[in-house]
């Protein structure tokens, strides 16, 4: 009996299912290599940093959604929440409420929408995609309603600093959003892998019944992950607004697909219970490289959603195949 069991060294136990991550890292590498050869512009430092900057806000939101997906849920409202939180902050800035309060306001509105999602899913027992589809529409409606459809411009320099400043590290200017992304990635990863809450999140998605019988308040865990997802998405939304220097009510529409795709490509299973932050980070990078690659290769912009859709589906199919192979599905 014993030798049938594969032993894992202690360092690999905690969700760092390394093999899978190395796999997607390899895909990222091959993709980048291909683009470097096929296009002269890909491997320039400007381009690389543009990619990094652009994917940082997607990745930060994807950290949040991956927690939601790990519990077996989904959040379709992330695109709208990004726009709404950026907009609220922008409007507060224009009302001269100061940077600190304005940023706090934007973050709180994101967390609040997430909290409402959590309530609808855990207390009212709504299917997650319907609940968040509803809040997606509501949050987007607020974006239009509050602005009358006009973008908010002329944000203070001190705010745009967050999106545009490059921190000189070892002589290279690393964009601030990328630094924020890395810090948040580490924090969320530690939260998932080292704290009691993290284990409960995995347990709820892996076997909700077992989690409940072990005395875990599964409703509270769901409330927590949706709220955190809203909060992280708001961080992404603020960084995006700071980078673009304008808060448009139409911003980030359709981003929910990119964000979900990042998580799924990174190995987060839509059936719950599995996923790592490192994987999500690589997933988000792949998405952005693909996006940039399509532009550099002269792929029409409007076809991008179809390409992204195809990639998501491939990732899901791969996930299903992997599960079947492991005998989890019949």
């Amino acid at each position: 009996m014993r030798n049938r069991v594969s032993r894992r060294p202690l360092t690999q136990v905690f969700k760092f299912q390394r093999i899978q991550e190395i796999g997607i890292l390899l895909i990222l590498f091959i993709l980048s290599l291909f683009l470097s050869i096929a296009t002269p512009t890909f491997l320039t430092s400007t381009n690389i940093f543009n990619i990094l900057r652009a994917f940082s806000w997607i990745a930060i939101s994807a950290f949040g959604i991956s927690m939601v997906i790990i519990t077996g849920g989904i959040d379709l409202s992330v695109g709208s929440v990004m726009a709404l939180s950026g907009l609220i902050t922008a409007m507060m800035l224009r009302a001269n409420l100061g940077d600190f309060l304005s940023i706090l306001g934007g973050l709180l509105i994101g967390a609040f929408v997430g909290f409402i999602n959590g309530l609808l899913v855990s207390k009212a027992n709504l299917p997650p995609f319907v609940a968040t589809l509803g809040t997606m529409s509501i949050a987007r409606g607020f974006c239009y309603g509050l602005t009358g459809g006009w973008p908010v411009r002329e944000l203070p320099r001190s705010f745009m600093f967050w999106g545009q400043y490059d921190i000189p590290i070892l002589g290279i200017g690393i964009p601030l959003p990328v630094v924020v992304m890395i810090i948040l990635g580490i924090v969320v990863s530690l939260f998932l892998n080292r704290t009691v809450w993290g284990y409960k999140i995995y347990a709820v998605g892996g076997n909700e019944q077992a989690a409940r019988l072990s005395g875990i308040n599964t409703g509270r865990i769901k409330l927590l992950v949706y709220t955190l997802c809203g909060l992280l998405t708001a961080v992404g939304g603020l960084l995006m607004t700071a980078r673009l220097g304008v808060a448009a009510p139409t911003a980030a529409s359709g981003y929910e697909l990119d964000i979900i795709a990042s998580a799924v490509i990174g190995g987060t299973s839509l059936t719950g219970g599995e996923g790592t932050i490192l994987g999500v980070l690589i997933g988000a990078a792949i998405m952005q490289v693909l996006r940039t690659g399509m532009v550099l290769l002269g792929f029409p912009a409007y076809w991008q959603p179809s390409a992204i859709g195809a990639i998501i589906i491939l990732a899901i199919m791969f996930d299903q195949y992997r599960k079947k192979k492991m005998g989890l599905l019949r």
Binding site: M136, S137, I138, G141, F142, Y144, G145, T147, G148
Partner: peptide
């Protein structure tokens, strides 16, 4: 502009 909000609700 507020219709989305109502429909969502």
């Amino acid at each position: 502009y507020w219709h989305d909000v109502v429909m969502g609700l």
